[in-house]
Amino acid sequence: MMKKLQITAQQIMQAALNIAAEKGAGKVTLDAVAKASGLSKGGLLYHFPSKEALISAMVQHLLDDAEKNRCSLAESESSVLVSLLKARRVFTQAVAGNTAMAILAAAAEHPTLLQPIQQHNKKVLAEVLSDPATELETMLLMLASEGLIFQELLSISPFSEAQKTTLEQYMINRAQELTT
């Protein structure tokens, strides 16, 4: 077991993400995170002075991972839109639904915690809307991608895995056609 002084904010946040993934949104409490990370509640509060601060860090962590993946894909893709759609496909495969739902559910209690996501989405939209001739279809592809993600997160998707894969590939192919 790690010494308490050596536990970092990143490790605490990872403990919170693990709780969310394994047990769901309602189980991400300061007491549970402190216990999972091997800290006292006071030790946890030293790093994250409130549950909102922890949730904010978790939101930022998801955004940073998604953006890192998108930027990596952008180096080899024909357009920002294609890299965005591929990154979102990877996101839904990589992030456990309970993790994202826990973060979103907790952040929904404090809508200001969702502002980084909103700002990120506005920035990405501005990047992909480079050609006025394809603007409407670009926005529709982004919206369809978001819809698939949220249906997955909420466990309400009517699509089979094969159908989702087909839809995602269609969106990527269509985005590639828009750039040629």
Rank of each mutant, 00 (worst) to 15 (best):
A32E: 15
A32F: 09
A32G: 10
A34P: 04
K35P: 06
K35H: 13
A36C: 01
G38R: 03
L39C: 11
G42W: 02
G43Y: 13
L44K: 01
L45Q: 09
F48H: 03
S50N: 07
A53W: 02
A53M: 05
M58E: 10
M58N: 07
M58L: 10
Q60T: 08
H61M: 04
H61V: 03
H61N: 13
L62C: 08
L62R: 11
K68F: 05
N69H: 11
N69C: 13
C71E: 15
S72P: 05
S72Y: 12
S72E: 14
E77L: 05
S79K: 02
V80D: 15
V80G: 12
L81K: 02
V82P: 08
V82C: 09
S83V: 03
L84Y: 15
L84R: 13
L85E: 10
A87V: 09
A87M: 12
A87L: 11
R89P: 08
R89Q: 15
R89Y: 14
F91E: 14
A94P: 06
A94I: 06
A94D: 14
V95Q: 13
A96D: 15
A96G: 11
A96K: 11
G97E: 11
T99A: 08
M101T: 13
A102V: 04
I103F: 04
I103Q: 05
L104Y: 02
L104R: 00
A105C: 07
A105E: 11
H110F: 13
T112K: 14
L113F: 07
Q115G: 03
P116I: 01
P116C: 06
Q119I: 11
K122W: 09
K123V: 05
K123L: 08
L125K: 08
E127G: 09
E127P: 02
E127H: 10
V128P: 08
L129T: 07
S130P: 10
T134Y: 05
T134Q: 08
E135R: 07
T138A: 01
T138W: 01
M139T: 04
L141E: 04
L141C: 03
L143H: 09
S145H: 00
E146I: 08
G147K: 00
L148I: 03
I149L: 06
Q151L: 10
L153E: 01
I156Q: 07
I156H: 06
I156W: 02
S157I: 05
P158W: 10
P158E: 09
F159D: 03
S160Y: 01
S160T: 12
A162P: 02
Q163A: 06
T165M: 11
T165P: 04
L167Q: 06
Q169S: 14
Y170L: 08
M171F: 01
I172H: 00
R174S: 03
A175V: 02
